[in-house]
Design a protein around this nucleic acid. Structure first.
Length: 271
DNA sequence: CGAAAAACCTGGCAGC
DNA sequence: TGCTGCCAGGTTTTTC
């Protein structure tokens, strides 16, 4: 589920409930997530003030006063919620009980996500594998062109490659290409400066729009049922196979690239 | 070496 | 009702 906007919305949603609080206890259920949570480390973050919450690529970092951090990734189906009581559902794998008497609960059906405890200064390869997200200054057209000018990969595959630009997933990759009127099969080495600029501009525009749409769900975040990573925004092509293109009326097509579905309009996305 | 495919895991849904 | 196969918003590991 979670691409950059959903992760950012989740980060903003939990932030006011956990900053300046501390964790009294941790419930650990099925801890064999993408990387196993090490139970022996949990004492490192108990009873320590939470100073802030950050997002890096699709990761959330919760920073503690003693220089430890919780590193959280939501994988494909993960979500975090703040609840008033500790009543756990199926697939609630971890729960952090706060000194405010509230609980931060991690649910993940497929367990592709992860939660780790890391220490400041520690080299974390998971994070270093990620390039800048589209909002970062480093993700400018010169950087992007340099990364793709010798690439034989399709632009769809390039947008999904977090080592180049992080934060974009399958839904927004499709939407960004539609907004840019660029074919998902266009090869990296064929891109011009202007086309790189268009891709980056639309990446920011579409991700921003999605974050703003997600922001409206923050009010009822406290509701245990609220799963802010799951909002639906207005989509032009994703999951619209066979439906009319909202721009030209042509039927939206679905193809498979690198094992992932790509939705696009063959008339609007000719380049 | 880069690029594509397979792997991790569970559940929903269409079709028979 | 149940079985089968396919699909799912991510990322790493393996294979070509």
């Amino acid at each position: 589920m979670p691409e950059l906007p959903e992760v950012e919305t989740t980060k903003r949603g939990i932030e006011p409930h956990i900053v300046k609080k501390s964790i009294d206890s941790i419930y650990i259920g099925k801890n064999d997530l993408r990387i196993k949570f090490n139970k022996n480390q949990k004492n490192n973050i108990l009873d320590t003030k939470i100073l802030g919450v950050r997002r890096r690529a699709k990761y959330i970092l919760v920073d503690f006063k003693n220089k430890y951090s919780l590193l959280i990734h939501l994988g494909m189906t993960g979500n975090l919620r703040v609840a008033d009581n500790l009543s756990l559902d199926k697939h609630d794998h971890m729960a952090f009980s706060l000194n405010s008497k509230k609980h931060l609960i991690y649910n993940d059906v497929r367990r592709f996500g992860l939660i780790l405890i890391i220490k400041e200064g520690e080299k974390i390869e998971l994070l270093e594998n990620n390039g800048p997200d589209p909002f970062e200054e480093a993700a400018n057209y010169k950087y992007f062109l340099g990364k793709i000018e010798n690439s034989k990969s399709t632009i769809k595959s390039i947008l999904l490659n977090n080592k180049i630009i992080s934060g974009i997933g399958n839904i927004y990759a499709c939407e960004i290409l539609f907004a840019s009127k660029i074919s998902p099969s266009k090869i990296g080495s064929s891109f011009t400066e202007d086309e790189c600029k268009i891709i980056l501009k639309n990446s920011k525009k579409i991700l921003n729009k999605a974050i703003n749409a997600g922001g409206t769900t923050l009010n009822d975040y406290l509701n245990a049922e609220a799963k802010p990573g799951y909002f639906k925004i207005h989509l032009n092509v994703y999951d619209r196979e066979g439906k009319d293109c909202k721009n030209c009326g042509e039927k939206i097509k679905r193809i498979v690239q690198n094992g992932r579905s790509t939705f696009f309009c063959s008339k609007c996305q000719l380049k």
